[in-house]
Amino acid sequence: MSVFNVFDVAGSGMSAQMLRLNAVSSNLANAETISGNEADVYQARHPVFESVLQEAKNMNGNNDVALVKVREIMQEDTTAVPHFRPNHPLANDDGFVYSPNIDAVAEMADMISASRSYQNNVEVLSTTKELILRTLQLGQG
């Protein structure tokens, strides 16, 4: 694998984790939304990743490089949480409104995990760049 392929691998990992962070932020932003019926309640979304081999050409021939790709964004199928609020403008005929069943603590843990994975990919890029620069400086001396 060429040293320049590291940029592709880490970049695809950063893109995947950014999408994961966006999904988590959307889930947290909609965790307290209210709907008048169960069918319209927001359902949490989670990306599903897969590894994709990409052919990379270098001086020694062909090598495969594994990149991260989003296979799909899954939507949870959880039941809505009913709240008895007869005076709420969105309440149904029985006086209930519904909110999503989103675990904010689990979403925060997922956010921390995605953030650390993103930071790890940034560190890989930074280290690779530093190694390339030091290699170029060796040629100058």
Results as ranks from 00 to 15, higher is better:
residue 141 G to R: 13
residue 129 K to A: 03
residue 37 N to I: 00
residue 100 P to K: 04
residue 137 Q to M: 13
residue 7 F to S: 00
residue 5 N to C: 09
residue 109 A to M: 13
residue 116 R to H: 07
residue 7 F to M: 04
residue 82 P to G: 12
residue 109 A to I: 04
residue 6 V to I: 08
residue 16 A to R: 09
residue 6 V to F: 04
residue 52 V to D: 07
residue 135 T to L: 14
residue 58 N to D: 13
residue 63 N to A: 10
residue 30 N to M: 02
residue 1 M to S: 06
residue 106 A to S: 15
residue 115 S to Y: 15
residue 89 P to S: 01
residue 37 N to R: 00
residue 133 L to Q: 15
residue 95 G to L: 08
residue 29 A to N: 09
residue 109 A to C: 06
residue 100 P to L: 07
residue 25 S to C: 00
residue 20 R to G: 13
residue 50 E to S: 12
residue 40 D to S: 13
residue 127 T to F: 07
residue 87 N to K: 10
residue 8 D to Y: 14
residue 128 T to H: 05
residue 113 S to Q: 13
residue 109 A to T: 03
residue 91 A to Y: 15
residue 138 L to T: 13
residue 58 N to W: 07
residue 75 Q to S: 11
residue 22 N to G: 01
residue 119 Q to G: 04
residue 121 N to A: 09
residue 33 T to P: 01
residue 93 D to K: 15
residue 128 T to M: 01
residue 97 V to P: 00
residue 26 S to H: 07
residue 88 H to M: 06
residue 40 D to Q: 08
residue 134 R to A: 06
residue 63 N to V: 07
residue 54 Q to L: 05
residue 94 D to Y: 01
residue 67 L to I: 12
residue 63 N to Q: 07
residue 109 A to K: 04
residue 96 F to S: 05
residue 50 E to Y: 12
residue 111 M to I: 04
residue 49 F to I: 01
residue 27 N to C: 08
residue 121 N to Y: 12
residue 49 F to Q: 00
residue 117 S to Q: 11
residue 40 D to M: 03
residue 110 D to I: 03
residue 26 S to G: 07
residue 68 V to E: 06
residue 18 M to V: 10
residue 60 N to P: 03
residue 83 H to E: 09
residue 73 I to N: 01
residue 14 M to G: 05
residue 135 T to Q: 13
residue 112 I to C: 07
residue 9 V to W: 12
residue 33 T to Q: 02
residue 119 Q to L: 06
residue 127 T to R: 14
residue 122 V to S: 14
residue 78 T to E: 09
residue 112 I to A: 15
